[in-house]
Design a protein around this nucleic acid. Sequence first.
DNA 1: CGGCAAACCTGCGAGC
DNA 2: TGCTCGCAGGTTTGCC
Length: 284
Amino acid sequence: MPELPEVETVRLGLCDVFQGRRLLRVRVLRPDLRFPFPDRFADRLTGRRVERLNRRGKFLLMDLDNATTLIAHLGMSGRFRIYKSDAPELERPLERHDHVVFDVEGGASARFNDPRRFGFMDLVDTAGLSGHKMLATMGPEPLANDFNGPALAARLKGRKTPIKAALLDQSVVAGLGNIYVSEALFRAGLSPKRTAATVQGGRAEKLVRAIRDVLTEAIAAGGSSLRDHRQPSGELGYFQHSFAVYGREDEACPGCVCDVGKTGGIRRITQSGRSTFYCAQKQR
DNA sequence: CGGCAAACCTGCGAGC
DNA sequence: TGCTCGCAGGTTTGCC
């Protein structure tokens, strides 16, 4: 489910409830998600104050007051849902696939629900965070100042794989997934089949611009709700209505003057096992 | 090392 | 109605 904009939306929603407050009770309702929970996971969280919620790529990072950090990844179907103290839902019974429940100081509660269990959580020393197995090889943050044309071009240099696959690689740039790669390549006018190494100079500049723009707009829209994504408040994101190509096979390309009959419309192909959507007319 | 398919797991919609 | 198939927003693993 979640790419950078969805994770950022979740982070913002969790900030309201978690930041500066203590975790009064943590319940872990099964031994594992994608990986086993670390030893004494709930015990080590209970009583801790949440200093700050951060994000790195698609990872949520919750800094605690004892120099440890909770790392959470939502996988494909992971969701956090907030239950406010004054809402009757707080007492609602646990639902199918609720795996972790955080009762927070002040009366609110947050539940992590993940049907497919591709998500995971880990608890590590904050000092060693960037060296964590899952974070160590991660590429630049696309919305940070140091992500620019030359930086992206350097990481694409020598790569024979299609640009689509390269952008899905979190060591090239952090946080992009199947939706936003298709959307960014459309905005940049680049074919998903183009060899990554050929994206240099002006093409890299344009792609960086496209990536930053699409992510920023999607965050402002609360992310994209296709199936699973909800903001922690329960609200839907609405950026899915702004997709130019994703999920729009056979529809008219929004940038083409010609009708669908002439251009063939938006195409869907499979690249390394995953759907890619693009306009063959506008993307080269 | 680079690149790709398969694997992990559940749910849902389409088609028969 | 009910079954099977294919597909889904991610990442790792293992195999060339």
